[in-house]
Design a protein around this nucleic acid. Structure first.
Lengths: 198, 198
DNA sequence: ATTATTGTAGACCAATCAGTCTACATCGAT
DNA sequence: ATCGATGTAGACTGATTGGTCTACAATAAT
């Protein structure tokens, strides 16, 4: 099996080995333990990198978090623009295939939720920059999702897109809380209901 | 209009005024700012309570969080066991009315997501007690939801319940991230699709 | 061979945190 | 009137945090 999109996103863009090690350790710890609960020293330990190197490359914990946001965003765009776009299925089947990608993601041993959602949960939600970044990410995802929905010939594509987006977020959060990948399958079936009705 | 369930949950059980002030301030700050990001001193300021009183009543920040969990759980049980149960509608209409309650919740100026979900997001997700508490809460909610679904005569009530639960979580998270209550309406429509198909 | 870059190792600092402690005020029940 | 419980006010502590700094090693390009 080809390398999973989550790994590709962190490794295949031009990054030094040190940066890659830092990003992988940071993403894992930020999601599994929490961002505030993860100390810099812990990231350095698990990445096997010196403290100075982290501050050379990223300057601050906040910038490291932003870099982690970028790698997770890359994962999603690879899903939409490579994995799903290369399929010759119908638009409807491509939409449903997204939930199979979610299932693979949930089953990774280092899946502990979505960095964006988790980060919003533990940061200021009134005029906070994290929330703004997450909203922007969300809109990019929904634009791609919306294009597929439109191609599927839905009567009210915007509403169907919002419904599917809701189900996707619900599946991610359910998988995070329960620690089970079953939410992906439930989400796929709910998406079928929505597409059937809409 | 009667007092909202969220307030009732925090005030109507036998609690001292000090405890109520602490719980309201803690819930608000834990959700809006994050649990780790909220210092004890900040809670004391906003509650207008002395440091000693907090440690007299709750002993630790962790115990205060547990108490906040309890008040949010009470809110849900009031929804299910009082607000929804007192309706004379059909089971289907009671299920959909849950999304109207969610809308009211999302529109409160102190809504910043679900304490359980937010707490899981920023705590250890491998053998962490917060995750266990959230799973237990989730199961209680789903049991009540499942009873309504069963009463609605769904063919596969368990699967319909899981789908609806997914949509509920999706709506909560979407409302938290976007800061808009529209997710409740989208969730209601998605729930209608699910009930129609299931 | 030398130099610049990128790395490691770890001491160090100021700030902040959860939690403890002392001293004093208020007030209802006896 | 007094006493015990519950409250406020705020100094204090030990641990931990993000971030800086010095000293040194390895590597690659000139």
């Amino acid at each position: 099996m080809a390398k999973a999109a989550a790994d590709r996103a962190a490794t295949e863009t031009k990054k030094t080995a040190t940066e890659t090690k830092l990003l992988l350790a940071a993403r894992r710890l930020f999601c599994r333990v929490g961002i505030h609960a993860t100390g810099i020293s812990r990231i350095l330990e698990e990445a096997g990198v010196a403290r100075r190197s982290l501050y050379m490359h990223y300057g601050s914990k906040e910038n490291l978090l932003k870099a982690v946001f970028d790698t997770e965003a890359s994962m999603w765009f690879q899903w939409f623009d490579l994995d799903l776009a290369s399929r010759e299925d119908s638009a409807r089947e491509r939409i449903l295939a997204l939930f199979d990608l979610l299932k693979d993601w949930f089953e990774r041993e280092d899946f502990f939720g979505c960095v964006f959602i988790n980060a919003v949960a533990e940061h200021e939600k009134e005029n906070g920059w994290v929330k703004e970044v997450a909203i922007a990410h969300r809109e990019k995802i929904n634009a791609r999702l919306g294009a597929m929905v439109e191609a599927s010939g839905a009567r009210d594509p915007d509403m169907v897109t919002e419904k599917l987006s809701l189900v996707i977020d619900g599946a991610i959060v359910t998988a995070m809380v329960t620690g089970s990948s079953g939410a992906a399958h439930v989400g796929r079936l709910a998406a079928e209901d929505i597409l059937r009705s809409g």
